[in-house]
Computed example of a mutant assay.
Amino acid sequence: MRKSAGWIASAAAAVLVAAGAITYAVAADDGGTGGTVPAADSADAGFARDMAVHHQQAVEMAYIVRDRTTDEEVRRLAYDIAQTQANQRGMLLGWLDLWGLPKVSSDAPMSWMGMGGMADGEDGALMPGMATDTELEKLGTLKGKQAEVFFLQLMTDHHKGGIHMAEGCVAKCTVGVEKRLAQGMVDAQQSEIALMADMLRARGAKA
């Protein structure tokens, strides 16, 4: 229990550090916008809002599987995902604070990509790649190898959806530091998809 609490505390600390540090990052790089704050309906703001929600679910899934298996390889991957995405989520929310923009919008998710209305939010899945509420509940009931396989399958789909969104920001966002973060997400998550494919094969399963 203490290990679990310490792990969660570490992830929370990463968010706080990122949220505080991001002010300096943006101040040092206005992305060529001349210091102009992005509009509330811009790709920059839409990506920040949507990816923060997307990342939050990845962190939740990582927390769930960590307590459903003793496999160190899966637990290590879950820890890395939770740390990285909690950190990035803090950065995205920090930008919205810095820009004085709301963290929620009445616009449909993905509207900034021209995909408004394509994600219907059925059973809690608000955006491409997101797990449904039913799938999250199922993950919480599995143990051992079954939990590992289902987590890896869910996270593979989650990463594919995240990559699609991040590529949209690379193409449409105007703030340089945010575009670079998005490209970093694409590169890292593509690498993790390859790793998870290997992990699934080792467990006799497919993505």
Rank of each mutant, 00 (worst) to 15 (best):
Q153R: 11
A171K: 08
A5S: 12
Q88R: 13
I64G: 02
A194L: 14
A39K: 11
A86N: 11
T84N: 04
S106E: 15
Q183D: 12
G32C: 00
C173M: 02
P102R: 06
G6K: 07
L139S: 07
S10R: 15
W99S: 12
I64M: 10
E192S: 08
A119L: 09
D187I: 11
E167T: 13
S106L: 12
L77P: 01
T174S: 12
I64A: 14
E72Y: 11
Q183K: 14
A13P: 00
S191K: 15
S191C: 09
V53W: 09
A58S: 13
K3Y: 00
Q146K: 14
M185Y: 00
A12F: 05
L195D: 07
T33A: 13
A207I: 04
E60M: 10
I64Q: 10
V37Q: 00
G116C: 06
A171V: 00
G100L: 11
G124K: 01
R203P: 09
K3W: 02
W99D: 15
S4D: 14
Q56G: 03
A125R: 08
D120P: 04
I193T: 00
Q56Y: 03
A14M: 13
C173H: 00
A11M: 01
A62M: 03
M113L: 15
N87K: 08
D107T: 03
Q83G: 06
E178K: 02
S4Q: 14
Y63P: 04
A14N: 13
R68A: 08
A43D: 02
K103V: 09
L181S: 03
A52G: 13
A12M: 12
